[in-house]
């Protein structure tokens, strides 16, 4: 027996653009992505969250995408508590792994950085979102060649259909070689636009 699944909200960030629920929230052509993420933090986050600046770029991207998405949807504290977060990308944490490798590459300048090492895992961004929103729900991080709606949604549906949660934040979060891209969508078994793989892929393509 399968329950109906809905898309409740979505948010996407690229190097120059942030889109949320069909609306372009901001667009910048001249900033590099690091500055762009910082400007999103300054302009769209209602809370002061100094920890943001300690995060690696991938975690910043995940944090902001979740922040803006959750701000633009309605969710009770209880729903947030059980929110499942299922993210994916191709490079895992290689962008930060390379930074860490640089800190240990040279025998004569060997100073491994704990603050970088802690971010050399792709799921740390999920942890940052959980801390921010007090979410104790299901987590998983998948590595796929490209955005794979089928994998994410099949997995999300197993959580929704077995009542492990009513809301799953799914998506893609990639930072590598000077480029960032994220696409998060909130699947729910209670309300929103009817979900289909075609539907979600169309939204993804349109960004």
């Amino acid at each position: 027996m399968k329950n109906t699944v809905y898309i409740k909200a979505y948010c996407a960030i690229t190097n120059t653009k942030m889109v949320c629920n069909d609306e372009v929230l901001c667009e910048e052509n001249e900033l590099d992505y690091k500055s762009f993420l910082k400007s999103i933090y300054k302009n769209y986050c209602e809370v002061s969250y100094p920890k943001f600046f300690k995060m690696d770029e991938a975690s910043k991207l995940a944090f902001l995408t979740a922040e803006v998405l959750l701000k633009n949807t309605s969710m009770t504290e209880n729903e947030k508590e059980d929110l499942a977060i299922i993210l994916s990308n191709k490079s895992a944490s290689l962008n930060t792994d390379r930074d860490y490798q640089n800190s240990i590459q040279d025998k004569n300048n060997f100073y491994p950085s704990p603050a970088i090492f802690v971010y050399t895992l792709p799921n740390i961004g999920i942890g940052e979102i959980c801390i921010r929103h007090k979410s104790y729900g299901e987590n998983a991080f998948y590595i796929t060649e490209k955005f794979d709606a089928n994998l994410l949604s099949t997995y999300a549906q197993t959580l929704l259909n077995t009542n492990k949660t009513n809301n799953v934040l799914c998506g893609w979060v990639e930072v590598e070689k000077g480029k960032c891209s994220s696409f998060f969508y909130l699947l729910s078994n209670t309300e929103g636009e009817l979900y289909s793989e075609k539907n979600i892929n169309e939204i993804y393509q349109s960004i």
Binding site: K54, Y111, P112, S113, P114, A115, V118
Partner: peptide, 8 residues
């Protein structure tokens, strides 16, 4: 983590 980084 900050404490560890200060040690470095």
């Amino acid at each position: 983590i900050d404490a560890l980084e200060l040690i470095v």
